[in-house]
Amino acid sequence: MRWLTEPAWNPPTEGETAVQVASRASLIISEIEEKYKDGNVLVVSHKATIRIILCGLLGIDLGRYRDRLNILVASVSMIRFEAHGPLLDSLGDRTHLDRRLLKLMGT
């Protein structure tokens, strides 16, 4: 159960730590930055992975990804890469979803 209180260094059973996820994901983010200098890129993943990526980009302690960023299922977050580093433009936007979907449990 240590992964619930300190997920940065303690994985769930047969899972990865937040540090491992961030390490793997940062390689992809770096590749995207290198390859696509202009325009938009859509990254789709599980919400924990998205929160971990955002924490890494924004300098938030990886072990606090559950405590600092609330992102719901099917939400959209936007990061803009600026001269001074990543800028969070939106977090967890779900205005694209139909109202019926927004009312469902677990979303």
Rank of each mutant, 00 (worst) to 15 (best):
A8I: 05
N10C: 05
N10Q: 04
N10A: 03
P12I: 04
P12G: 07
P12S: 09
E14H: 13
E14K: 12
E14F: 11
G15P: 06
G15Q: 09
E16A: 04
A18K: 03
A18N: 11
A18Y: 02
A18L: 06
V19D: 09
V19P: 00
Q20Y: 05
V21N: 04
V21E: 04
V21G: 04
V21W: 00
A22R: 01
A22E: 04
S23K: 10
S23F: 05
R24C: 05
R24D: 02
R24N: 07
L27M: 10
I28S: 14
I28H: 12
I28V: 15
I28R: 14
I29N: 00
S30A: 15
S30K: 15
S30T: 14
S30E: 15
I32V: 15
E34F: 10
K35D: 08
K35P: 01
K35W: 01
Y36T: 10
Y36N: 14
K37Y: 10
K37A: 15
K37N: 13
D38N: 15
D38W: 10
D38I: 12
G39P: 07
N40P: 02
V41S: 04
V41K: 05
V41D: 07
V41G: 06
V41A: 07
L42D: 04
L42I: 13
L42V: 14
L42W: 08
V43Y: 15
V43A: 12
V43N: 07
V44F: 10
V44W: 08
H46F: 08
H46G: 06
K47R: 14
K47N: 14
K47M: 11
A48T: 11
A48Q: 12
A48R: 09
T49E: 07
T49H: 03
I50H: 00
I50Q: 03
R51Q: 11
R51G: 00
R51M: 11
I52K: 01
I52N: 00
I52S: 00
I53R: 01
I53K: 02
L54A: 03
L54S: 01
C55S: 06
L57N: 07
L57M: 14
L57I: 00
L57W: 02
L57C: 08
L57G: 03
L57E: 13
L58E: 02
L58N: 08
L58W: 06
L58R: 06
L58Q: 07
G59N: 09
G59L: 05
G59A: 08
I60K: 02
L62R: 00
L62C: 02
G63L: 08
G63Q: 07
G63T: 03
R64I: 02
R64G: 03
Y65P: 01
Y65D: 02
R66S: 11
R66V: 10
D67N: 14
R68P: 00
R68D: 14
R68H: 12
L69V: 05
L69Y: 06
